[in-house]
Amino acid sequence: MSSVRETLRAELGAAVLSARGEGLDSVLVLDAGAVPGALARAQALGCNVLVDITCVDHLRWVPAGRGTPSHPDRMPRWELPKPPSRFKLVYRLMALDAGQGAVRERLALECWLEGDAGPASARSLWPNADWLEREVWDMFGVRFSDRPDIKRILMYEEFVGHPLRKDYPIGKRQPLLGVDDGAAPAALSDEELRPSPGGKRP
């Protein structure tokens, strides 16, 4: 029996942009448009568990030779590939043999997004995609095309911005809700906020 990875590669053809990794570390990089179909197909082929959905923001991913904003004092020793776009979405799937508890296959599907427009939701395939997609929206601001009214999950509704984006400074605090009635010290002003990560320590 051929693996889900090989079957998907054969079926999707040109929508598979590249593949890397072996065995349990297999990764297929797909065209964003092909993701919903690929997920449904992977499920039909036996990937019964959605292990994770996550995102990586490549805003500060600087190709070699220019130094990194996070470490202006160091030059990277390695050549870095230029990212095709800013956000990369990762779907991590597993084919689990429920009777034996053995992992038949693990497969990660990656896709690069145009702007912050994500693919359609995977909720109808795996119900846990609901929370995972809410987290990706909350932390990265990636919109899933059929979830216009998606809700934050870790942060509160009044929070402005998406904290895991690389351009959100780690120290940027927002007003404390419900406590600014004069009795308690006011929330930090902009001047008190710490500068962006690079300038944290000399």
């Binding site: 292990v51 994770d52 996550t54 990586v56 991913w61 470490h71 390695w78 870095l80 991590r92």
Partner: peptide, 15 residues
């Protein structure tokens, strides 16, 4: 408990 670590070759984790 899974850790997905991304390195850009610098001294801090990229993600």
């Amino acid at each position: 408990l899974g850790f997905h670590v991304v390195s850009d070759g610098s001294r801090r984790p990229y993600r």
